[in-house]
Design a protein around this nucleic acid. Sequence first.
DNA 1: TTGAATGCAAATCGTTTGCATCTCA
DNA 2: TGAGATGCAAACGATTTGCATTCAA
Lengths: 140, 140
Amino acid sequence: MKITHDFKKIMHDANLKCTAPRELVIALLYEKHLPLSAQDIFEQLKKKNTIDLATVYRTLASFEKAGLVKRIDLRTDTVLYELNTLHHHHIVCTHCGRVEDFDLCEVDRLMKKVASQSSHFNVVSEHTLEFFGVCTACTS
Amino acid sequence: MKITHDFKKIMHDANLKCTAPRELVIALLYEKHLPLSAQDIFEQLKKKNTIDLATVYRTLASFEKAGLVKRIDLRTDTVLYELNTLHHHHIVCTHCGRVEDFDLCEVDRLMKKVASQSSHFNVVSEHTLEFFGVCTACTS
DNA sequence: TTGAATGCAAATCGTTTGCATCTCA
DNA sequence: TGAGATGCAAACGATTTGCATTCAA
């Protein structure tokens, strides 16, 4: 099932107008299933479409505000975005940049511990967790 | 004990020359004990000293390469730096920006799990882990 | 019809770099 | 003395913004 089937509903639920650029961006994020930078998205899309880099930035900003995408920091020079689907984290190869998803997250338990230990925080609502290593392809 | 006592040794071990800007930067990071941006450091130091913003950037870069400081991403608009002391993480108030250290880290176990589950990574050497919530001062 | 979204260009801001000068080792 | 570090100014690159035009609702 392509994301575009749901596009109208998604936009409507997010109180955003259905526009060509928005559909292009969301479809690309869905297709690639990887954290992408605004530049990445722009480069990919402009091959076959008319789209402006500023529009990509504005689109990502409104998507983020609507909770449709999430900013990811993988120690790259620029911020990356990915669809805000199921909670997951990443393993990044520090050598070639390969990114793999990592679904297992046991941080919830840890978050409760954080809250109970801290004198200034009672509730910890979010966390970032990313792993870095060297992938098998780069090791051999 | 002030860090400046050890400054010469630290610089020597890191193969870096002892200079006034470097001592200022390292002393400030030690004193504040908080993640600071290059701009932060520059603003603080220029009140009482002659220092250039470019020097701050270069100092942080050489410190990072030498393993003296660590880049921290707390979802702020710019990257922050702190002394690379004992392994720890942070809890950040998403309302006022307050930062608290969090020493407990049980991610080592998780890292092994990550490595064993992944088909492309055998070794996971590093991780980032930050918590976000609203602090008690902002809740009340 | 109208407010929001787009494209284009210019502005902004954090960061980096070139270069002459200075300073530590 | 010589390599590396600094200060200053200019360059750079990612991101943002102003504005006229277009478009979805």
